[in-house]
Computed example of a mutant assay.
Amino acid sequence: MDVRKMPMPMKRVVHLGSRSYGRLTAPGRMTPSFLICGGQRCGTTSLYRALAGHPVVLKAVLHKGVHYFDTSYDHGMAWYKAHFPMNRSAEKVTERYGVPAQTFESSPYYMYHPQAAARIARDLPDARLLVLVRDPVERAYSQHHHEVARGFETERDFGGALALEPARLHRQEERLAEDPAYYSFAHQHHAYRARGEYARYLSVMAQHVGRDRIHVVESERFFAEPETVYDEVCEFLGLPTYFERPVFEKHNARPRQSDMDPGLRRDLTDHYLPHDDALARWLGRMPIWRRKA
Rank of each mutant, 00 (worst) to 15 (best):
Y183T: 14
V216L: 07
K11G: 08
G38F: 06
V14C: 05
L268K: 04
V99D: 06
P55S: 00
L237F: 07
S33L: 10
R281T: 11
L169C: 01
L264S: 02
R23I: 08
R168C: 11
V57K: 02
Y141D: 14
Q207W: 09
H15C: 11
F69V: 05
P287I: 00
H251W: 13
C234R: 01
T154E: 15
Y109W: 15
Q207H: 12
E244K: 11
H208D: 10
L176P: 09
Q115I: 01
G28P: 05
V217C: 03
M77Q: 12
G53K: 06
G159P: 00
R139G: 03
R285G: 04
P255N: 00
H275P: 07
P114E: 00
L239R: 08
L268N: 00
R19C: 08
S89L: 15
V233D: 06
L279G: 06
D123K: 01
L264I: 10
R23S: 11
L239C: 04
D212I: 01
E244Y: 09
P55N: 01
H83P: 02
F185E: 13
P136D: 10
L51K: 02
M205P: 06
G28N: 07
P114R: 00
R134E: 05
R256G: 12
V131I: 14
V209D: 02
S18L: 12
V13M: 15
R245K: 10
T241E: 10
H215Y: 12
T154V: 13
Y80G: 10
D261A: 10
W79G: 09
L130Y: 10
H251A: 13
V133A: 08
H63V: 13
L239K: 09
T154R: 15
Q102C: 07
V131P: 07
A206F: 04
H189D: 02
H275M: 01
Y183C: 11
R245N: 05
T31W: 06
I214E: 03
R4F: 13
H189F: 01
G160R: 02
A78P: 11
H190Y: 05
S18G: 09
S33I: 12
P255G: 09
P125T: 05
R168F: 09
K92M: 12
E95P: 11
Y73D: 11
D259C: 06
P114K: 06
Q143S: 10
V133L: 06
V229I: 11
A163D: 00
F152V: 04
G43W: 08
Q188A: 15
D126P: 07
L124W: 04
L169P: 06
A101I: 11
R265M: 07
Q172S: 07
H146K: 03
V13W: 14
G65C: 09
Y68N: 03
H251N: 05
A191Q: 01
R29L: 03
V209A: 02
V66Y: 01
R23G: 00
H113G: 09
G76N: 01
V229G: 07
Y272K: 04
P262Q: 04
T45N: 01
F236H: 05
H170L: 13
S89K: 14
S18I: 11
V57L: 09
T25L: 11
E244A: 12
Q188T: 15
M86A: 15
G39W: 11
D157Y: 00
